[in-house]
């Protein structure tokens, strides 16, 4: 899981704007439904939780099930009233957490 998430959001916005945020995390999202060539079930390994915070306050989060496609993509909105930092986290079934941050200037 050395892969880096991809983020797309504006660098600048006006106060009160609702901006669009796109995120993509490279990940196999192994469903736990597949079998290997010996007929053994391949254990489930997915990103089960995503969170987005702005200046420490929750904006959006998602609990994900194995029905989310590989390389989980999430698009959502945020209403920005002040400049600050978005923090995104992805939690793996194995307990590891990957996070990423992006700043936005609100004028």
């Amino acid at each position: 899981m050395a892969e880096k998430p991809r983020l797309k959001l504006p660098k600048e916005a006006k106060k009160g704007d609702v901006i669009e945020i796109k995120t993509l995390m490279p990940h196999i999202m192994e469903s736990g439904q597949r079998k290997d060539k010996d007929g053994k079930t391949i254990p489930r390994k997915i990103i089960n939780k995503f969170t987005a915070e702005f200046n420490g306050k929750p904006v959006f989060s998602a609990n994900l099930d194995p029905a989310i496609a590989a390389n989980p993509y999430l698009q959502f909105s945020a209403k920005v009233e002040e400049s600050g930092t978005f923090k995104f986290t992805w939690t793996d079934d194995d307990g590891s957490v990957i996070s990423a941050e992006e700043k936005i200037t609100v004028g």
Partner: peptide, 27 residues
């Protein structure tokens, strides 16, 4: 019609601005 019915649960807040989300799913 999936082996497990759960797909996702989205949590919004007033800071979301809009109750909208997109993703890609397996069917």
């Amino acid at each position: 019609g999936n082996p497990n019915p759960g797909v996702a649960t989205f949590h919004f807040s007033p800071m979301s601005g809009k109750a909208e989300a997109s993703t890609r799913i397996r069917l």
